[in-house]
Structure formats: C-alpha cells, structure tokens
C-alpha cells in the first residue's frame, strides 16, 4: 500500500515538478490522412470484422451515416516516422547493433522532461475516452499535456511520482475525437 507523503519523508513533488502540471506540447499534425488501407490493415490485425469499417452502403444506413474508424487507431498515427526524417531503424542499428528496434527516435510534440532525479519508469495504467469516430480523409492533430503529477510513498518509505500524460486527438475541423491518458510511476 502507498500513502500520501508524510512530513518526515523527503518530498519529490518539488515546486519545479508541480510547475509541469498543465504544460503542453505543440499541436502536431500527424503524417498522412485516415485512409481505407490503414483502416483495413488495422481492423484485420485487431480482428474486428465490423462492416461499419468497410461496407459503405451499409455504413450509410447506420447511426453514424458513414464508414467509421476505431478512435484508438489514430493514436498509432502519432508514432509514424515522417519521410523527411532520417531512417530511424537504420540509425538505431548503426548506433547499437543490438538495438531493440526502436532506438532514440525524436517524436514531434514531445513534452519536456520532468525535472526530477527519479529515473526508473513503470507503466501505471492507461485510459481512453471516446467522443467521436474519425472519418476517412480526416487529418489528425494531437497534443500532449501533463495532466497530473501526484506524490505517493512506497512501502520502503521513499516518495515517488505518478505522472499522467494526456494526449488529445482532433481532426481538421477541430472536432474532439478521443483522449488517451498514460500514467507512469517514476521512482
């Protein structure tokens, strides 16, 4: 069990860390548009045969009136390596022949680091909140934000941080499509 930091525990929720709450990254336009081919590959890979994704005539008769797109699908568009960027895979293996395949790719719109000496990061949970299905042809914009940073104390008596990063996804019409949140523990 953890508890709120007591006065005799050295706090890691410093004023500098607190100041990061609400800090936003730049609004970034994802590469490409939401297209039927990405939709086909995604829905086959997640194993969802819903005809609302591919049968245009049927889709017109549904509550949504058109082909719909899984909102979580567009969250993976933010990780695309743009063609005007260096080949990230080749670079990763040039730097480290035993690369994990990801390397140190710089992501557009990334948030500044939290100013803390705590370095170990563990995933503490994910959330998704859905407001509207993306449409074919949508251009996706996303923006990172530090939604919340809290302090807790572990069994060992040491304080740690729970950092919640929020990403808001919208389209070219500024329609809010979905929000994802990822919480991580920083020890």
């Amino acid at each position: 069990m953890t508890q709120e930091a007591q006065q005799d525990t050295q706090s890691v929720l410093t004023p500098e860390v607190q100041a990061m709450i609400g800090v936003q990254g730049e609004l970034v336009e994802s590469w490409g548009t939401v297209d039927v081919e990405y939709l086909r590959r995604f829905t086959q890979a997640v194993m969802d045969p819903d005809p609302r994704y591919w049968d245009e005539e049927f889709a017109k008769t549904t509550h949504y009136g058109e082909i719909i797109v899984p909102p979580i699908m567009i969250s993976y568009m933010t990780g695309r390596i743009r063609p005007d960027q260096e080949d990230a895979i080749t670079k990763a293996f040039e730097e480290n022949p035993m690369s994990d395949g990801i390397g140190n790719v710089e992501r557009p719109g990334a948030l500044p680091e939290i100013p803390t000496h705590l370095v170990r990061t563990l995933n503490a949970g994910n959330e998704i909140e859905i407001f509207q299905y993306p449409s074919i042809g949508d251009v996706i914009f996303f923006q990172n934000r530090y939604r919340d940073i809290r302090e807790r104390v572990g069994r060992d008596g040491k304080a740690f941080l729970i950092i919640t990063r929020e990403i808001t996804y919208s389209n070219q019409k500024k329609d809010l499509l979905c929000i994802t949140r990822q919480s991580s523990i920083r020890r």
Binding site: F42, A45, Y76, G79, G101
Partner: peptide, 19 residues
Amino acid sequence: THLFRWSAAIENFHRIHYD
C-alpha cells in the same frame, strides 16, 4: 503471425514482439 501482423499494422518495430 498475429503478432507480426499487429506490429506491421501499427508500425511498432520493437523486436520483443517478433524476434
């Protein structure tokens, strides 16, 4: 093969999923 298909679909190149 399912894992490889997912990696390819979302362009996740992390080797722990296919190597």
